[in-house]
Computed example of a mutant assay.
Amino acid sequence: MKFVSLLHLLSFIGSGYACGGHNDEKEWSSEELAELEAKWGHEWSFNGIGSFAHLDYVKCLTNPQETYDIAIIGAPFDNAVSFRPGARFGPRAIRQASSRQTSLRAFNPRANVNPYQNWAKIVDCGDIPITPFDNNIATEQMTQAFKNLGRARPTSSLSQGRPKLITLGGDHSLALPALRSLNEIYGRPVRVLHFDAHLDTWDPAAYPSAWGSTHFTHGSMFWMANQEGLLSNSSTGQSVHAGLRTRLSGTDWADHESDTAQNWVRFAADEIDDIGTKGIIDGIMSVLGTEDPVYLSVDIDVLDVAFAPGTGTPEPGGWTTRELIRILRGIEGLNIVGADVVEVSPAYQGRGEETALAAAQVVYEILSSIIKKGLEDGAKEKRGSGRDEL
């Protein structure tokens, strides 16, 4: 055809300018680059390549020079589950569900911060390439990956020399490698706040094992962590379960007795009916305080199956999404040094992605709390320095 539309002609000229050799030799000024960013840099919630909340994506494990204050990292592993598999697809689903979170519209009214436009450099570090064929190798891969990522150089002094990792699971067993890495990085055990329908402190020997079994499961990783001395569970350093409603083994309270011997404090899901979200918040904070380092672990099955059907071990009678979010907002004073959101198994969720959406919101609330806590601690330190100078 001899006729060429003006739009097609302009498109052809533009592509020639962008791809021609003369463009490679052009020196772009900072003003021109800023103009390009203003023109083309924005992403709507429905476009982009699918990083968490449209954050910058860097394969941090192969780019050790990358700096950040907070890293989102996926752990697509589900070989330690006891019922329904599929959580290896959780990181991808959570990222997809986070697409409506953009830095442009992410101000959190309760925290008075936009976590994506504040002091912390937050990046999506991609996924750990975990083998699905050997749990021993998988455990070591996760442990080494968390250690490497946790040694990265932060960009802000408010990070106090260490970045924080938020892991998208994957099944809950990843908490053990995460705790191993924190123990090495911080040089001390940490306490745990564990939101879950299940205890996850079961002695692996309690499972049928005539044919042999692995200790590494998504129901025994906190028992293993206690055996390895990774938890500061002493008379003054207990850890906390919240949202429990699982069935127990045998005919008595042996599971609770074992859990108590490991020095955990338990808040059952039903307690919210009597003491409300504020009672749960007050109970958690009275145990954990605001100073000791805490690892926050959120199993999405803490929510009722009506709100999170897409999980591997669903238990009816859990909390609503609103209740969990309210509790997360109430514990923002915790000294969180790492976190995970696990057990999202998208094959079992509805078409509306309610489970992954809830998980993405949990990550957003955790990020907001970390950012707010950093600002408050920085302000306290500045006031303290001022007094010292006087």
Rank of each mutant, 00 (worst) to 15 (best):
Y68A: 06
A53V: 05
A18W: 11
R329K: 13
S45N: 15
S157C: 05
V362L: 04
K382G: 03
F46E: 08
T167N: 04
E291Q: 05
D69Y: 14
A356T: 03
A306P: 05
S297F: 02
L231S: 12
L357N: 12
E66R: 08
V305Q: 13
E376N: 15
L288C: 04
Q65I: 09
G384C: 14
R110A: 04
D273R: 00
S30T: 13
I275M: 09
E43I: 01
E389G: 06
E381D: 08
Y116R: 10
Q96R: 15
G330R: 06
N47M: 10
E271D: 14
V341P: 02
L375H: 14
D273M: 05
Q101V: 11
L324T: 01
A111K: 10
A268I: 06
H172R: 00
N226D: 06
V4M: 09
G310Q: 03
K278D: 03
C125G: 07
I73S: 08
D388H: 03
I284D: 02
I284W: 07
Q262S: 10
G90C: 01
I325N: 11
E228I: 04
E271H: 01
A308H: 14
A197W: 07
V302Y: 06
I272F: 05
A205L: 13
E353G: 11
G330V: 00
E37M: 13
D259N: 13
T355C: 09
K382E: 15
N136C: 12
A175L: 09
Q160D: 06
R153A: 06
R84V: 04
S209A: 07
G219M: 04
L230E: 00
I185P: 08
G378L: 03
L357Y: 00
D259Q: 02
R110F: 10
G16I: 06
G384F: 12
G161F: 02
A206F: 12
N47S: 09
A379T: 14
D127N: 11
H194K: 08
R180N: 09
G243V: 12
R105A: 11
M142Y: 04
T201D: 02
E343H: 04
L324N: 06
T131A: 09
Y17L: 14
S297N: 11
R329P: 01
P91M: 06
I300G: 12
I185E: 03
R329M: 06
A34M: 14
T246N: 09
I128Y: 02
L179G: 00
F146I: 04
I300N: 13
A80S: 14
A242M: 01
P309M: 08
L168I: 05
A106F: 05
R351H: 14
F89S: 05
G378E: 09
I70W: 02
E365L: 10
R322D: 04
T246K: 15
E271M: 09
S51A: 09
D196C: 03
K278F: 06
G50L: 10
Y186C: 01
S99W: 00
P316I: 00
A308D: 12
L334N: 08
I49H: 14
M285A: 00
E323I: 13
D273N: 04
S235V: 05
P115S: 10
P115M: 03
G41F: 05
F46Q: 08
K121A: 01
D304W: 11
A18N: 01
D273I: 00
Y207C: 13
A269C: 15
P64L: 03
I73H: 11
S368D: 03
N114F: 09
R387S: 12
L6G: 07
S209K: 13
